[in-house]
Computed example of a mutant assay.
Amino acid sequence: MLGMRPFFNQIVGLIALFYHNVAEMKTGESKTLTATLPMYLHGLMGPGNYLITANAYLANRDAQNIGVVYEWLGLTVAIGTMLDEKDNPDRDKNTLYQADIIYTTNSALGFDYLFDNLAATPADQAIQGFNFALIDEIDAVLLDMAQTPLVISGAPRVQSNLYGLANTMIHKLGQTTDIGQSNDQKKFG
């Protein structure tokens, strides 16, 4: 259909991904094609399968390019993020999250999840479940982007100075001072 067939390294990668492992692939080794089989197999189980990318461009590109394959195989595909809010400002999140496979970004899915937690009843929640998530560019999503809120908030770096605190305490104690005993116990003990 697309005129593409997986190479050996892509087959090994898709097996690793299907069994919930991390597969490292270099640029140009077609991670997009590698992700199709694990996404399809999990998509057969129904809604709640996410391919999470680092940015909206990748989510839209991959959903449009590979989504035709999933649809040809009988699954539904949706894009959980937009390149431009003007494209579809009134998107229906309930319809979106009923798709078998959803291409989205970590921030779009995260915000939708947080909004769902504000719903009064489970029926008011758009996200119906999480069956499988495949994270493209996992290092960027889980490490680089996870630090951004800390940088923005100006959170101070936590530094442990337990040695210095212990040293200060030791020097404040005298040789004859015993913290664990009262004066009466010292007389008789």
Rank of each mutant, 00 (worst) to 15 (best):
L2D: 01
L2V: 02
R5F: 02
F7A: 01
F7P: 00
F8Y: 15
A16F: 15
A16G: 14
L17I: 12
F18S: 08
F18L: 15
V22L: 10
E24M: 13
K26Y: 08
K26R: 05
A35G: 13
A35V: 04
H42L: 06
M45I: 06
T53I: 05
T53F: 11
A54H: 06
A54P: 13
A54M: 02
A56Q: 12
A59R: 11
R61N: 07
I66W: 08
G67M: 10
Y70S: 00
Y70K: 00
L73R: 04
L73T: 08
L73W: 02
L73F: 02
L75T: 01
M82N: 02
D84C: 04
D87P: 11
P89G: 03
D90G: 11
R91Q: 10
K93A: 03
T95I: 04
L96Q: 05
Y97I: 11
I101R: 02
S107I: 01
G110I: 09
D112T: 02
D116G: 04
N117P: 09
A119C: 08
T121V: 14
P122L: 00
N131C: 14
N131Y: 12
N131H: 14
F132L: 04
D136T: 13
D136R: 09
D136A: 10
V141T: 04
V141I: 08
L142E: 05
L143P: 00
M145D: 08
T148R: 11
L150F: 13
V151S: 00
A155T: 15
Q159Y: 11
S160W: 14
N161K: 08
L165M: 15
A166M: 12
N167L: 13
K172I: 07
L173W: 11
Q175A: 14
T176H: 08
T176Q: 12
T177G: 07
G180V: 08
S182T: 06
G189Q: 03
G189R: 06
